[in-house]
Simulated scan of single mutants.
Amino acid sequence: MSKLTIVKIGGKVINEEDQLDSFLKKFAAIKGDKILVHGGGNIASKLQEKLGVPVNMVEGRRVTDKEAIEIVSMVFSGLNKKIVAKMQANGEHAVGLSGADGNAIQSVKRPIKIIDYGFVGDVKAINAEFIRALLQAGTVPVFCALTHDKQGQLLNTNADTIASEIAVGMSDMYDVDLVYCFEQPGVLSDFEKKTVISEITPVSYKDHKDRGVISDGMIPKLDNAFNALGLGVFTVKIGHFDSIGLVQSNDYPGTIICLN
């Protein structure tokens, strides 16, 4: 099977024009088929605050009520087109998408248990044939963090999860490399010294969690990573956005997630 590289970009780089430009230039140099998934929650939060709409986060997850989904949809869609325009400047034939486009990513509204997350979607299905057709047409799909329920409703969906679910959905057709990029050099054992854990297995992951080395927002990212590997994704890597140019080499300086 041919190789497919799926990159999720998030964190502070989305907010900084020069850093985003640098990342996209290096992303454009990645050879072969590729897909970009981006977040943008910080930008949405800032606009919510400006508009007087409260930002409600529970365990790092955004509670998305009726007003919030309108703002999130506007911000993510606008950011998506901005990124696509920048990619065209780098010679990329990029296509900006939400999960609603081509029925690419169908979700269900998260059921109410202890917390009502509002218009938040849990991914139900990936339209792998549609995405493959885009790749075969020579385009680079760029997904924002919006999916849909096929009943006319857009849903806010975690971008890490979208990247993982697309990777799993495409793994029957490609050898998929999944890469999570942000402003840190990888998964860290010492935040102050920026000490990178070069490799994480299920056993070492449990140990790091038990000792509090890995915590908070890194846990769902790693849970997504191990889920993807268990369902057929070839490799998963986590690192600094500046290292994206080395993702296809044997010298990747970030963290590699392994099943054994």
Rank of each mutant, 00 (worst) to 15 (best):
residue 2 S to R: 14
residue 10 G to H: 09
residue 13 V to P: 01
residue 15 N to W: 08
residue 16 E to M: 13
residue 17 E to L: 15
residue 21 D to N: 15
residue 23 F to N: 05
residue 32 G to H: 03
residue 33 D to I: 00
residue 33 D to P: 10
residue 38 H to D: 06
residue 39 G to E: 08
residue 41 G to V: 00
residue 43 I to E: 15
residue 45 S to G: 10
residue 51 L to P: 04
residue 53 V to F: 12
residue 55 V to Q: 09
residue 55 V to F: 08
residue 58 V to M: 05
residue 67 E to Q: 15
residue 70 E to P: 04
residue 70 E to Q: 14
residue 71 I to S: 10
residue 72 V to E: 08
residue 76 F to G: 02
residue 77 S to W: 06
residue 80 N to W: 02
residue 82 K to P: 00
residue 85 A to F: 11
residue 87 M to Y: 04
residue 89 A to D: 11
residue 91 G to T: 01
residue 92 E to F: 05
residue 92 E to P: 00
residue 92 E to N: 05
residue 102 G to T: 01
residue 103 N to G: 13
residue 106 Q to M: 09
residue 107 S to Y: 00
residue 108 V to H: 04
residue 108 V to Y: 04
residue 111 P to N: 03
residue 112 I to A: 04
residue 117 Y to N: 03
residue 118 G to F: 03
residue 122 D to Y: 06
residue 125 A to I: 01
residue 129 E to A: 15
residue 130 F to Q: 06
residue 137 A to Q: 15
residue 149 D to W: 03
residue 149 D to V: 05
residue 153 Q to K: 13
residue 156 N to I: 03
residue 159 A to W: 08
residue 170 M to P: 05
residue 170 M to Q: 13
residue 177 D to Y: 02
residue 181 C to Q: 09
residue 184 Q to K: 13
residue 186 G to T: 03
residue 191 F to R: 13
residue 195 T to V: 11
residue 196 V to E: 14
residue 199 E to K: 15
residue 199 E to A: 13
residue 206 K to G: 14
residue 207 D to P: 05
residue 219 I to R: 08
residue 219 I to F: 03
residue 225 A to V: 13
residue 230 G to E: 14
residue 231 L to E: 15
residue 237 K to I: 08
residue 237 K to C: 04
residue 240 H to I: 00
residue 244 I to L: 12
residue 249 S to R: 05
residue 249 S to K: 12
residue 254 G to C: 04
residue 254 G to E: 01
